[in-house]
Deep mutational scan, measured.
Amino acid sequence: MATGGRRGAAAAPLLVAVAALLLGAAGHLYPGEVCPGMDIRNNLTRLHELENCSVIEGHLQILLMFKTRPEDFRDLSFPKLIMITDYLLLFRVYGLESLKDLFPNLTVIRGSRLFFNYALVIFEMVHLKELGLYNLMNITRGSVRIEKNNELCYLATIDWSRILDSVEDNYIVLNKDDNEECGDICPGTAKGKTNCPATVINGQFVERCWTHSHCQKVCPTICKSHGCTAEGLCCHSECLGNCSQPDDPTKCVACRNFYLDGRCVETCPPPYYHFQDWRCVNFSFCQDLHHKCKNSRRQGCHQYVIHNNKCIPECPSGYTMNSSNLLCTPCLGPCPKVCHLLEGEKTIDSVTSAQELRGCTVINGSLIINIRGGNNLAAELEANLGLIEEISGYLKIRRSYALVSLSFFRKLRLIRGETLEIGNYSFYALDNQNLRQLWDWSKHNLTITQGKLFFHYNPKLCLSEIHKMEEVSGTKGRQERNDIALKTNGDQASCENELLKFSYIRTSFDKI
């Protein structure tokens, strides 16, 4: 039985969820670079991206490699990797027998973001014989899940209580170790020597080791999670996991709180800001991140802002960003909400898709409305799209047979046209069989910064309504002859009103 693990408890099935942008060198404390989270699957090609990484700022997932063999891993080693800020997950990587050479110096898994409450997941690794993470000293947050690894031993010899604050939620089941077939031998045991430290858990006094050649490092209890030197002297209180010299914040392997210019500090002093819960960055760093993602459509890219001495992905609820200094300031009234469309555009074809934009005031991208039916549609669209004030790209209304009016965009005031449909149009209306009105132009103002209007096959939309939009939106004169079809717009509506004058002759039985 794995020490510190839980057996036999019912657990939810383990679901495996399925960018080499360097964020800056980590400095003297770390020998390499800070790398983003990685999802490495199918083959070993991307694994080489770990070569210079000291910190993975995010998670590391290595999974679904069915053609790899043990010899493929023999020359692979990433000794610079010290810390993973989120979680480490391995799933069905064939041929991998140990992690001792792959990650010989991995010391800390912070667990800032977890995989279903777990910071370390080893699942269905069919050839893994031992973990071998002999320098792993601290899992700051989260638990361990090690399950269905039929060859995995050296679990009962690990004292997880020396690595985690609590072992109650560890789930370590259905491994070879369960069948008591392992016969784990710690260093020196074969020669009758006791080389590794022994600890007591559940009444068992057991030597602690990761492999037959690597003991588990056990520091004096007084050192807590700070770690200790090879001689057993406690590291500085700002260290986490390990250090090369005692009581020196510049000799830590990793930091308990924050890293700044080669030393570990309790908090980031001005003019620095907390970033990702582990390091200090200056304003320029946060500003660069903001600008890199301002026009990016890459998933996970955030326009970072500053709030409460932190550089964070977005302002919290009730705050909006001051564009001059990136500071989050309290909103006066309802907060603006910028919604970034991942692929640059979004099609609204149902109430469900409209709900995804609920509360958005600025759309960074283009909207395509293609709704053919739905219950209580006008009210639903207004509830979900009615706060949109600005669209950076274009607005396209296409084959939306259920629409009679666009009044559900009740606050839309600006279409920038930074991206144009077919390279020309910022407003595009095609084949809307029941569209009769755009907006009530006596109450609604709309500016279209650039781009043209396109109207074709809107049989109940009168040309007068379209011409009014040209005047109000500032697009009059931009359109070419064929942009607004004269014969297919309003051709099934009563669009022309003329005053009919009647004269009559009164007659009676005795007068003409």
Rank of each mutant, 00 (worst) to 15 (best):
D39A: 12
N150F: 04
F91E: 02
N242G: 08
N117C: 04
G203S: 09
I158M: 11
F73S: 03
D184S: 11
Q303M: 13
L88G: 00
P31Q: 11
L29Q: 03
A156G: 10
L50Y: 04
C252A: 01
G58F: 01
P197R: 12
S213E: 10
L44F: 10
G32F: 11
K148G: 04
E97S: 09
T189P: 10
F283T: 10
F285L: 04
P271V: 03
C53D: 00
S112M: 15
L60R: 00
N149K: 00
C186W: 02
G333Q: 06
H214K: 01
F275C: 02
A190M: 04
I201L: 14
S143I: 03
H28M: 05
L99S: 01
Y171L: 08
R297W: 05
C215Q: 01
K217H: 05
L164A: 10
P336W: 08
C35Y: 00
M65V: 05
Q299C: 07
V121F: 02
N42R: 07
P79Q: 07
L240A: 07
I109P: 00
I185F: 02
Y171V: 08
I201P: 14
T194C: 02
D159A: 06
I84T: 00
H48K: 10
L155M: 12
L106V: 02
G188P: 09
N309D: 07
V167L: 04
C35S: 00
K310T: 08
S77W: 08
P70K: 08
E97Q: 14
T267A: 14
S161M: 04
Y259C: 14
E71L: 03
T157D: 12
C264A: 00
L131P: 02
C335T: 08
L106S: 00
V121L: 03
I158K: 04
D277H: 14
F275S: 03
V34I: 07
Y171F: 11
R297N: 06
D277E: 11
V265H: 00
P104F: 01
E168G: 03
L44P: 10
L332R: 07
H236E: 06
H28F: 13
C301L: 04
D169I: 10
N149A: 12
C328F: 01
L29W: 11
F116S: 12
M65R: 02
W160V: 01
T199P: 08
L60H: 00
R297Q: 11
D75S: 10
S143A: 12
E151I: 06
E181N: 10
E180V: 09
E124T: 02
G227T: 06
H59C: 13
W160G: 01
T68Y: 12
G32R: 13
G37V: 13
T107S: 10
F78V: 04
R41V: 09
K129Q: 10
Y154S: 11
C315W: 01
I82Y: 14
T45P: 15
M65E: 12
Q204G: 15
T140I: 07
L120D: 00
G227K: 04
C153I: 01
P269H: 00
N43R: 07
F285R: 02
E314L: 04
Q245V: 09
S317R: 00
I306S: 02
F123L: 12
M65L: 06
L81N: 00
N309G: 13
P270T: 02
C235F: 00
D39P: 00
Y259P: 00
K67Q: 07
H290W: 14
G37D: 11
P270H: 04
V108Y: 04
D277P: 02
R162V: 08
S324T: 07
T189R: 07
C268W: 00
R162D: 08
G333L: 03
T250N: 08
I201E: 11
C228Q: 03
D288Q: 15
D75A: 04
C223Y: 02
P79I: 03
N175H: 15
L63E: 05
K67C: 08
R110C: 08
F78W: 02
E147M: 13
L63I: 05
N202I: 04
L131N: 04
K294Y: 15
R298P: 06
L289S: 10
F115N: 01
I306Q: 03
S324G: 10
I109E: 00
Y118K: 06
C228V: 09
R256K: 10
I146W: 00
P187F: 12
L155W: 11
S244L: 07
R41P: 15
A198K: 08
F275T: 03
N195H: 10
S324E: 04
T45V: 12
D75T: 06
N242F: 08
R208K: 13
C219R: 04
V253S: 15
C215D: 10
D288Y: 05
T189N: 10
R297Y: 02
L131I: 14
S98A: 05
T329A: 07
M38G: 03
N117H: 08
T140R: 10
E33A: 15
I56L: 08
I306A: 02
V206P: 15
E49L: 07
L81S: 01
I139P: 01
I172F: 05
K148S: 15
E71P: 05
L240N: 13
C196Y: 04
S324M: 11
S237P: 10
V305E: 02
N150R: 15
C315N: 00
H59D: 02
C182S: 14
A254K: 03
C215A: 09
D86K: 01
R298K: 04
G132T: 02
E314Y: 04
R110E: 03
N309W: 08
H59A: 13
G232W: 04
Y273W: 05
C219H: 07
G232C: 14
L81H: 00
I172S: 13
L174H: 15
